[in-house]
Design a protein around this nucleic acid. Structure first.
Lengths: 170, 170
DNA sequence: CTTGGAATGTCAACAAGGCTGACTTAAAGT
DNA sequence: ACTTTAAGTCAGCCTTGTTGACATTCCAAG
């Protein structure tokens, strides 16, 4: 490993897209693109007392209304203490509602309030606008490849969460 | 905006890949994939007293040896104070060397030491391994699309930095 | 040559948001 | 009755962002 083209020429096919140089470009592309990906919502949030963590919570509550705290925890991959801090402010500010479960009263089911939906809309409009521009510039073929690679890059646990959300939302 | 398929049917072509649902899937794919993208180096780093910020610094110093602090600042997109803290520990631990500029003594030129190169190698081997697996699973066509979309998603300033690094490194 | 401004880098202090650990409360299961 | 599970809380830590104040160096105008 280390330099050059570790994996190339390991088969008869052209595996030049697997050289260390290509991989490093992929890594750097991922780094720079993620910055763009979060930039627009971050700008909106910094005007309020909120951060990226609030955005994520609001996004997934909107995506799966009625989700339990535990479920959200698994999706976000943070500790309950960390999530709780965020959730507490969102509830106090009237953006999120926490309803005691009917079937299992230990659970709390999370919903966005009207205000919460407004914020969610502002944030995802901004984020979608950039994604839309990128998709349009790149074209449908590229978008398909984009998604294929991203899925392959996920941990299997996350891929399951992602797939579940995807199927849920058609 | 808001629901359904805002941008579809705006032309004769099939623009179904620009529906809000498709965009949201792209957003979520980006979120989950980025977690995988950073997971392996993060594991290595958490055993030491380092974090993701150290990884980024080490990566780009390795990528552009002799770079100045200011240049690194622009690439990383953080404040100089934030970078300085990270740099200070790396220098104290003997992973990075800071040489006073000969031409302009205000500048510091950054280089990895032998130890620094070892750490960099460990981190990028781990990150490349995942990227390589994802690329291989997805195939060259998908990889090309992946990169196209990511480039389109960057801020123009970041795209310039990315392109410059890319050309530098062939 | 000197002096003021701009550039570069450093130190200090603060905030957000991760984390662990210990604990409570309420409800469910067994 | 006892144990387990879901949720929440409090305390304290770490990383990594931020601003503000400051030192050093360079350069250009007077």
């Amino acid at each position: 490993m280390s330099d050059g083209r570790s994996s190339a020429a390991s088969s008869g096919e052209s595996l030049l897209f697997l050289t260390d140089e290509q991989l490093r470009q992929g890594i750097e592309a991922m780094f720079f693109a993620y910055r763009g990906f979060t930039a627009d919502p971050d700008r909106i949030l910094s005007d309020m007392a909120y951060g990226r963590a609030h955005h994520r919570a609001v996004h997934f509550i909107n995506r799966a209304p009625g989700t339990t705290v535990n479920n959200l925890l698994n999706i976000l991959g943070v500790t309950k203490q960390s999530l709780n801090r965020v959730l507490r402010t969102l509830i106090a500010d009237g953006l999120v509602e926490s309803r005691v479960g009917r079937l299992d009263k230990r659970e709390r089911h999370l919903h966005l309030t009207e205000d919460g939906r407004v914020l969610e809309g502002r944030l995802s409009d901004a984020q979608r606008a950039r994604m839309r521009a990128a998709f349009r510039d790149a074209g449908p073929e590229a978008v398909s490849g984009f998604r294929t690679v991203l899925e392959a890059m996920m941990d299997s646990e996350m891929r399951r969460a992602y797939t579940k959300l995807k199927e849920n939302g058609v």
